[in-house]
Design a protein around this nucleic acid. Structure first.
Length: 763
RNA sequence: GCCGGGGUGGCGGAAUUGGCAGACGCACAGGACUUAAAAUCCUGGGAUCGGCAACGAUCGUGUGGGUUCGAUUCCCACCCUCGGUACCA
């Protein structure tokens, strides 16, 4: 059986941007789930053929990787997406099955004439390899247990064992397979194939370490240069042949197993390769790899790959190929909730499907779910909608149709919601093209790293399809991505390891206690999770301190991107800060809301030092906000308050600028302060304070003076002092002089406005 | 195993990317106000050593090397930790 017995691109075109399935180049696939598990993974799926809708995301694999370069995303996420797509470059090679009448020379001659066929003949095993340069080291082959040729290769003698193994492999769960990593298992089919580069007969095995879903579902095993094949060969006593000479360092590092063994030399490597504990899988130099037409001996791995691939093409035995880990996307769900897939199946006069399908017309969209009393899963491929008899039937142009009853997965909505957000109330279109053009792309997407591959890859895929069809104006949806860190909470446990819900914990001096029993609790830091009951409701700090304080505190705890432990310690400091800011501006003793007597109304009253503090604050806060460094922005605002609280005269213009800078982070209190400062319009519409660079230029600067890298003094000097002046000032500093006694100055390094370093040696 | 983050005072974290390590805040200590407490305000603080003191010296950003006049920052090796991924041929 093949995973795709029949897949095709829908032949018709439709221009509706809402007709997602069609627009995405949907393919229909016959998937016979033989080895599958249910989504929950707790019971095997029934062996029934399902016709399910797939989205051909693999067609976009390369673009999904290449276009990452254009994005301002965290490297970690880009890397994850690259790995997920998992592009690899190699070659497909055909190994004929050894049958009684098989003749190697005749086969190679035939291939040389005909060339490499698109589909392998029925008696040929096609493999994919990233190391075609190791073909001469292929001493056996392994097929996935589900591979269609297993049946043909299995000899009568081996049949019962092979069947047993297939049965065993099909019951293995994902976890079992991972758990069994190191212990290789498998069965010999009894059949042989022919290594096409040297005509050798090699045994064909089946093993669960070869996956039906990747590559061709079959491999050539090169135990000398692949770790898995090496382990397998050792387990089952299969021959190991050296065809790549390792580097000296590798040979030296990797001693043969057993005590007191000397390292293998280049001379003994080929003979004793089986004594090693690891295969050499890096790049080396070809060896023992030659036939009448081609030799790889002495060639570095890169060149050897190229040369053998050329020869394979020339001989009609193989061709270059690219494979991806990324699979096409199974888009059908057999459940009620979800967008109905807008496809119609044409019916014949007796009400049977003709096999012809059509997209729902644009004016018939959207297709809404029918009202149903019973929408529970049915275990039937049609899903719950299969029971909505009236909804299913539709007549159009004198022809009967049945609606598709599978629905889309949750992903469908999250793949394009940002586009709908551009025009959320449009009743006639998914979105207006003009509005899309105005808003897109999304400038900044703040989201959790848990969406690194699925959501963020799927929506990029949809967006590219929509771009190709002219529905969106950009090739990527999200320009900049920031992953906010999770806030971790401490999970508290009783002495017998029961988890105590956060709400039942009492914090007293010296630790946490179980509210009911007074028992002292042990803490382990974990992420917050509903299941563990250690989710901290944001209502608690909001009730105690208010929304502004809570919000500001979360921003102050640390950088946006990093994970942070939740702690109420420190929230009091933020509360104090907001109170101080309030008292800096508002006269508390008055009945109403009146300006503090120190706040003067004329802007001109600010002195130079105050203006300097103000504009330094504007400078750093502006930059911090732009780089999302909220924690340091808040620090700067605290410094501002610390300074101005000590000022007997607080110019109103300075106070206004401060409130403006604080307002995005503490909107409620700032709105009130803005009113107290005499404004009737909302602060939300006031503009950000403007930096006047004149005030942040210092006329004189204090510069540390180092001797041999250690600070020995500091000088205050005009900011525009030249090299010579700086040197003289440094050398005349008393402490510097003291330390230079008995030394001679060899060199003076001057970094203007930053640092002077005197290199001195003892006389 | 592989890929990607991170490791700085008692704690959360700063450091304009090679130029004064520890901004800001918490907790702590001392003081002021108060009958008292809360609130508020002021002062202190990386460690060690010397000094009544201001101050001075030495050490100090996970560990060990290296580059440099100068390293939290760059390079090499290692340890720990968090996230992702897992037989992908």
């Amino acid at each position: 059986m093949g995973l795709y017995r029949d897949s095709f691109r829908l032949a018709y075109q439709a221009e509706s941007p809402v007709n997602w399935c069609e627009a995405l180049g949907t393919v229909l696939a016959d998937e016979e789930v033989i080895n599958g598990r249910s989504e929950r993974g707790d019971h095997p799926v029934h062996r029934i053929p399902l016709r399910q809708w797939m989205l051909r995301i693999t067609a976009y694999a390369d673009r999904l990787v290449e276009d990452l370069e254009k994005l301002e995303w965290p490297d970690a996420i880009k890397e994850m997406q690259k790995n997920w797509v998992g592009r690899s470059q190699g070659a497909e090679v055909d190994f004929p099955i050894e049958t009684s009448g098989f003749e190697y020379d005749a086969w190679t001659a035939g291939r040389k004439n005909a060339g490499f066929p698109e589909e392998p003949e029925h008696d040929v095993i096609r493999v994919y390899t990233t190391r075609p340069d190791t073909l001469f080291g292929a001493t056996y082959m392994v097929l996935a247990p589900e591979h269609p040729l297993v049946e043909k290769l299995t000899t009568d003698e081996q049949r019962s064992e092979v069947n047993k193994y297939i049965e065993y492999a099909s019951t293995l769960s994902e976890e079992d397979r991972i758990a069994g990593h190191s212990e290789k298992n498998g069965v010999f089919t009894g059949g042989y194939a022919v290594n096409p580069v040297n005509g050798e007969n090699i045994p064909v095995w089946i093993a669960d370490y070869v996956l039906i879903s990747y590559g061709t579902g079959a491999i050539m095993a090169v135990p000398g240069h692949d770790q898995r094949d090496f382990e397998f060969a050792k387990t089952f006593g299969l021959p190991i042949r050296a065809v790549v000479m390792p580097t000296e360092e590798w040979l030296d590092r990797l001693r043969p197993s057993g005590r007191n063994q000397a390292p293998l030399s280049r001379d003994t490597y080929a003979r004793d390769i089986g004594l090693l504990s690891e295969a050499f899988t890096e790049n080396g130099e070809g060896m023992q790899s030659a036939n009448e037409g081609v030799s790889l001996d002495g060639l570095p791995t890169d060149q050897a790959k190229e040369k053998i691939t050329g020869w394979l093409v020339h001989s009609g035995i193989g061709h270059p190929a690219v494979k991806y880990k990324l699979r096409d996307w199974l888009f059908s769900r057999q459940r009620y909730w979800g967008e109905p897939i807008p496809i119609l199946h044409a019916l014949d006069s007796e009400g049977k499907p003709t096999g012809i399908i059509q997209a729902v017309r644009e004016d018939e969209l959207p297709v809404l779910l029918p009202e149903m009393d019973d929408f529970k899963p049915t275990g039937n491929p049609a899903g719950p909608l299969g029971k909505a008899a009236e909804w299913i039937r539709i007549r159009r142009d004198g022809q009967s149709f049945a609606r598709e009853t599978n629905t889309m997965p949750q992903w469908a909505g999250s793949c394009w919601y940002y586009l709908r957000f551009c025009d959320p109330k449009n009743r006639y279109q998914a979105f207006d093209p003009g509005k899309e053009k105005y808003w897109m792309p999304v400038d900044l997407y703040v989201g959790g790293a848990e969406h690194a591959v699925l959501h963020l890859l799927y929506s990029r895929f949809w967006h590219k399809v929509l771009f190709d069809r002219g529905h969106v104006s950009t090739i990527e949806p999200f320009l900049k991505l920031v992953n906010q860190g999770m806030i971790l909470s401490t999970t508290y446990r009783t002495s017998d390891s029961r988890v105590v819900p956060y709400s039942l914990i009492e914090f007293r001096e010296g630790g946490a206690f179980y509210e009911k029993t007074g028992e002292e609790l042990d803490g382990v830091t974990e992420k917050m999770s509903k299941a563990r009951g250690n989710v901290i409701s944001v209502d608690v700090p909001i009730q105690k301190y208010g929304a502004d304080t809570t919000r500001l505190y979360e921003m102050f705890m640390g950088p946006l991107e990093s994970t942070k432990p939740w702690s109420m310690q420190g929230v009091a400091g933020i509360s104090r800060f907001l109170n101080r800011a309030w008292r800096m501006i508002v006269d508390e003793s008055s009945e109403g809301l009146e300006l503090h007597s120190s706040v003067v109304k004329e802007g001109a009253a600010a002195d130079l030092q105050q203006l300097r503090v103000l504009h330094k604050t504007i400078d750093s806060v502006t930059r911090d906000m732009e780089s999302l460094s909220f924690n340091t922005a808040i620090s700067r605002l605290m410094e501002f308050v610390n300074y101005f609280t000590g000022q007997a005269v607080r110019p109103r213009s300075c106070m206004e600028s401060f409130v403006l800078m604080l307002s995005p982070m503490a909107p409620h209190i700032c709105e009130e302060l803005w009113q107290v400062l005499g404004h009737s319009e909302s602060i939300a519409h006031a503009s950000w304070p403007v930096l006047d660079p004149r005030y942040i230029l210092e006329s004189s600067v204090e510069i540390p003076v180092q001797i041999n890298g250690k600070v020995r003094g500091r000088i205050t000097i005009a900011a525009d002092a030249d090299q010579n002046e700086l040197e003289q000032a440094a050398l005349s500093d008393p402490n510097v002089k003291k330390h230079l006694e008995g030394h001679s100055v060899r060199k003076i390094i001057v970094i203007p406005k930053k640092m002077i370093n005197i290199v001195a040696v003892p006389k």
